[in-house]
Design a protein around this nucleic acid. Sequence first.
RNA 1: GCCCCUGUGGCGGAAUGGUAGACGCGGCAGACUCAAAAUCUGUUGCUCGCAAGGGCGUGGGGGUUCGAGUCCCUCCAGGGGCACCA
Length: 865
Amino acid sequence: MKPVSEVKSAIPELYDPRHVEPRWQRYWSENRCFEAQEDPARPKYYVLEMFPYPSGRIHMGHVRNYTMGDVRARFLRARGYNVLHPMGWDAFGMPAENAAIERGVHPKTWTYENIAAMRDQLKSMGLALDWSRELTTCDPSYYRHEQEMFIDFMKAGLVERKVSTVNWDPVDNTVLANEQVIDGRGWRSGALVEKRDLAQWFLKITDFSEELLSALDGLDHWPEKVRLMQRNWIGRSEGLRFSFALEDAAGALLDERLTVYTTRHDTIFGATFCAISVDHELVRRLAGKDQGLADFRREVAALGTSEETIERAEKKGYPLGLFARHPFRPSVRLPVYAANFVLMGYGEGAIFGCPAHDQRDLDFARKYGLPVIPVVAPKEAESVSIGSEPYLEKEGAETVLINSDFLNGMTVPEAKEETARRMEAMGIGERKVNYRLRDWGVSRQRYWGCPIPVIHCKTCGIVPVPKSELPVVLPEDVTFDKPGNPLERHPTWKNVGCPSCGSAARRETDTFDTFIDSSWYYLRFCSPNADEPLDPKAADYWLPVDQYIGGVEHAILHLLYSRFFCRAMTRTGHLDMAEPFASLFTQGMVIHETFKTAAGEWIFPADAEHKDGRWFHAKTGEPLILGGIEKMSKSKRNVIDPEAIIERYGADTARWFMLSDTPPDRDIEWTEEGVEGAWRFTQRLWRLVNDAAKIGAAGNFADEGVELRRTVHRALQAVTDDLSNLRFNRSIARVYEAANALGAALQQSKPARAAIREAAKIMVLMFAPMMPHLAEECWKILGNQTAVVDTPWPKPEPALLAESEITIAVQVNGKRRDEIRIKKDLAREEIEATALALESVGRALGGRAPKKVIVVPGRIVNIVG
RNA sequence: GCCCCUGUGGCGGAAUGGUAGACGCGGCAGACUCAAAAUCUGUUGCUCGCAAGGGCGUGGGGGUUCGAGUCCCUCCAGGGGCACCA
């Protein structure tokens, strides 16, 4: 390793990050400071930030995310951990294809050029990353393992091919995700989106519904918010599945029964109709003989699935001419409808309607003139009357069943139990747990993704590509002149021989959802060059990820898929671990003021000028309107380019600003004053350290330096605690305190030299994880021969943390009246006596005798008068 | 509609049930300067008062406690997640 002394440093008046930062980046890189090796002798720590999509430029969100991860990595490294901190590229996805369509660049070229540009930008941030492990998901050396694992998943029964209804864009000839359908139209083409039934590949995430749910309880280093969102997403509900006998209009019993699912079986005597999904097998069958029903089905299908449509859609039904017999009152006939609000994908695709206690059922009943029978009422009331709103149980309210035969007088849980028990005894029902979670559809009719390694053969059916023939490499000679998937119209690629029978067969032309790529990349970092997806030895040493940091927008999909993937890989023998991320941190967004002209045109912050409390366009001078502080976005133009900031202020200033003031999980507002403040502070630190260095070699600690030492050691203790808990904003406040104390000490006519030298050293080490370049430069100025990256985290001296004299507050009737300075271990009685002797206390008591005195040693005295 | 989070000076925000406002930004005053910037020093919740010293203060209301920003109930406001899920 190159000695630090050979790295040239000048001591300019102004600290110039433009020269200093690249120099230290080179030093770290040349000395391979951050390349991790497995070392069983040392405790490991795996820090990871969510890897970026290579859009071409980093944005402020990246800066915030990667700064936090970097502080974590550098801090733990200094504390003796063997830290793994890698970086890669989530490189498949639609933007690359759009670039190809719009600008004629090949997706691969576009992607790799973007990666090169973004890599340089990330390097300019001075991140302590192990670049030797860099991986790119669009590289066959990465995705071949994905294909292999998919085949293993198939063998393990974790893959299913089934027909599902999708959003189909008839102009772009592709499936669209729900998020890509806006007001019923394709987001790119503007074409009316159709519903189509297509054969799709699914990963059976629902095999793990219960486990994915219950294991959330063990993730106690995850934000409660994220666990809750996943819980809701999985959506477990306990209910009853049972069947009704069906009869026709004439009252003749049919052979077939109607199975429904409910969580409110207690309300069975309030049932007044049944409703089934238009996609229900029974409805499909009846539609063959009933033109009106067929039309109704088409009408419902055309309505689309966007939230807005659903919100506005009226509850509609079509009577099927069938009736369900009430299980406990055979004479009661419930009309059966096909209805637009019943989903085929949940439960049985069929329900019984109890209008008195469900808004949706009530709307339906009112529209079709069906009876409304209240069956649950407050305990004191005899009954409830239902208008346009159902009676819903309020939490904690005591309610009982009414109008319900043998259930009358029971509580809701009792009634549920009794109903379930009876139906089970009758052999028509069973208790059933249902989940909202759906299987994961992974087929995309897209080019720029990982090819799905299967072959369709007319005789053999679906045949996996033999592992010896992997990877199935994406062909590069494709054209984007026509809409649709270029793989479909490639002249040769899709025509293959069947691996099983040899006859002419067709290659699968769908590619994987890119969420598959990101479901296991963190595993691959352990052994990026291994022949198998994951080298067990490396996995054993590095996994799980100890600290994962990213945006909350991935709280459900990416994090849930990753949790599923680990389980699936464990089942197929690729891994032995259920939970990939031991602790998770979700950082807030970077937000910024928006500016617009009177005409409503959004203006870049760079073109906005602040004068006399108002904003003007820097070029035209026209007054600007503030549009509110919002997430940085291209559409509102309120973006600040990190590259420009780093060029002007340096990476340390940008990093410092990102960590200051605002707690890391909240949204941070980017402001000019804030960056300027951070910039001034880097200069101030530089001056302080230079002044401290000039003060010369020191002898012993003198008495006059003890206050400085106390402050600095206390700050060190606090920074250590705060950095351990990702409380960056608080650590930064402590660094300011140390700097203020050091500054004051330097101003004194007879400076405490030894204490100042020590304070400067500790201060530099404390801010090093946050401003690593400045720290290295300062460290050198202080005469050190080793680099900060190789310097262990300092330890505070316990003697300096303890105080012999403390100040405690004195309250009278809970109101602070005074404070006293006392010896720390002063006896309770003496504290009481000291407090009672205070003039201020006597005044506040107004001559009354104290009734009671509460003394909390080390904290407070409260005198009750 | 259901679930969750947040609410503290002009602003970002501190505060194991124990001195509310650490630290920063901004402001004000002073030093340096011909001047400005930069830097350094002091000051800065509101309010009454010349002062000493009071009063009021953590979205509103109530409660528990010797003591509440912190715990409980309730209402209000802002943000987020899910949403025809039976």
